[in-house]
Nucleic acid binder design. Structure first.
Length: 403
DNA sequence: GCTGCCGGGAT
DNA sequence: ATCCCGGCAGC
């Protein structure tokens, strides 16, 4: 991270570095050469695909027959002397059109490239040996200075669900390769994802999954070990919400109580009301318990997340109240529950066992009670900070002197 | 003011 | 994942 890797700027004119072929002396000669090739293939097969190498070559020729020493970046004009005969223009146009319709561009057809440095090689591959034979300087479709129309990705290709996004990614990639610029970070969306704790009377909103999980694990579930089960459990106690980056209402200033209608909250995942004790059922339902899913049509849309949450508290672990509030197992009737879910959502067989502590401690859930035990700071002193436990050093809950 | 520690940022 | 710190809240 410290020292950036030395990057070798790929010359625009030599993305491959090699592949030097003697070009046709003139544009006319080149086009004629290509026309002959096209005519030859016409007799053999009417399949347009046969023309691809020749057409590519034609495009290439239109580029490489222009005077090479000409500066690349700024000039986009094509010398008139090279485009005098109408037939030449027609051939160029035909080549471009067929190329366009065929979407031969390997950038489009090739699978998504993970390594951008491999992209040029792939592009060259598509042109095949024919391109080499007919001559090209290797930058046929890249040169911004030539007057040839660059094939644009056909719309039909973008319809394919598997097709990579043709525009932005391609442009970025090419920019990166050509101009050696670091990939621009994705624009920050105006909608920010946040995670709301669905634990009763909590409603804490955090901006990271890790944070909300840690919050739930330490504050509500009250056990930091048991990685497997607790990790699954945490998934049920928070909900992903979308916060519009409205300057009037910054997300960090969200009140503990959930707003009456979260801006873009598509519905709490609690609508499916999966039991925490059956993670497999939930896993089969979608990519994740926090996946944004629209409320089922006809299903009552809970206006408050905290309202819908308790309906899914199938079981609350007894050891979740780890401090100050002793675990008390009380089967609370839905009526007495302050956040009684809508009747349609609440399964009558699911009597949510709400720990009494929920009602008793109130603020208890929002912040861990101050520990009674001596902590590392007190035991070792600030001068022996290196002897503190890691958590204490990081100003976290002490792990050495647990309460 | 001291202390514990939560939440988030930086690396 | 690890490290660090601002800031909040209890004492």
């Amino acid at each position: 991270m410290g020292t950036p890797l030395p990057k070798t700027r790929l010359g625009k004119r030599s993305p491959m570095g090699a592949l030097v072929i003697a070009p046709c002396p003139t544009m006319e000669a080149c086009v004629n050469c290509c026309k002959r090739a096209v005519e030859k293939h016409k007799h053999v097969d009417n399949e347009v695909s046969v023309y691809i190498p020749q057409l590519l070559a034609m495009l290439a020729a239109s580029a490489h027959t222009t005077p090479d020493p000409r500066p690349v970046s700024s000039n986009i004009d094509v010398p008139k002397s090279y485009r005098s005969p109408e037939s030449v223009d027609m051939d160029e146009m035909m080549a471009a059109m067929v190329l366009t319709s065929l979407s031969c561009s390997p950038i489009i057809q090739s699978p998504p490239q993970r390594d951008s440095t491999t992209a040029p090689a792939c592009r060259m591959e598509c042109s095949g040996g024919e391109l080499s034979d007919s001559g090209s300087s290797g930058y046929w479709s890249w040169d911004r200075g030539n007057g040839s129309p660059v094939p644009s990705p056909p719309i039909a290709e973008t319809d394919s669900p598997l097709a990579p996004p043709p525009d932005e990614g391609l442009d970025m990639e090419m920019e990166q390769v050509l101009f050696d610029e670091p990939a621009p970070r994705k624009r920050k969306n105006s909608v920010k994802v946040a995670y709301r704790c669905l634990w009763p009377n909590c409603g804490k909103v955090l901006t990271s999954v890790v944070g909300i999980k840690r919050h739930i694990r330490t504050l509500h579930l009250g056990h930091s070990s048991e990685p497997e089960q607790s990790r699954r459990e945490e998934d049920f106690y928070y909900s992903e919400i979308l916060l519009e980056m409205d300057p009037i209402a910054p997300p960090t200033a969200l009140p503990a109580a959930p707003p009456a209608a979260p801006p873009a909250n598509p519905g709490a995942p609690w609508a499916s009301c999966a039991s925490p004790s059956s993670p497999t059922q939930q896993a089969a339902a979608g990519p994740g318990p926090r996946a944004l899913q629209p409320a089922a049509p006809g299903a009552p849309q809970p206006s408050l997340l905290s309202q819908s949450a308790p309906s899914c508290f199938w079981q609350v672990r007894s050891e979740h109240s780890y401090q100050a509030c002793p675990p008390v197992q009380v089967i609370a009737s839905p009526v007495s529950c302050p956040w009684t879910p809508p009747a349609a959502v609440l399964n009558t067989t699911q009597v949510a066992p709400v720990p009494q502590s929920f009602h008793q401690r109130g603020h208890c859930a929002s912040r861990r009670a101050r520990g009674e035990a001596k902590k590392c700071r007190k035991v070792y002193g600030i001068e022996h900070r290196d002897q503190w436990c890691t958590a204490c050093r990081w100003k976290k809950a002490c792990q050495r002197f647990l309460d």
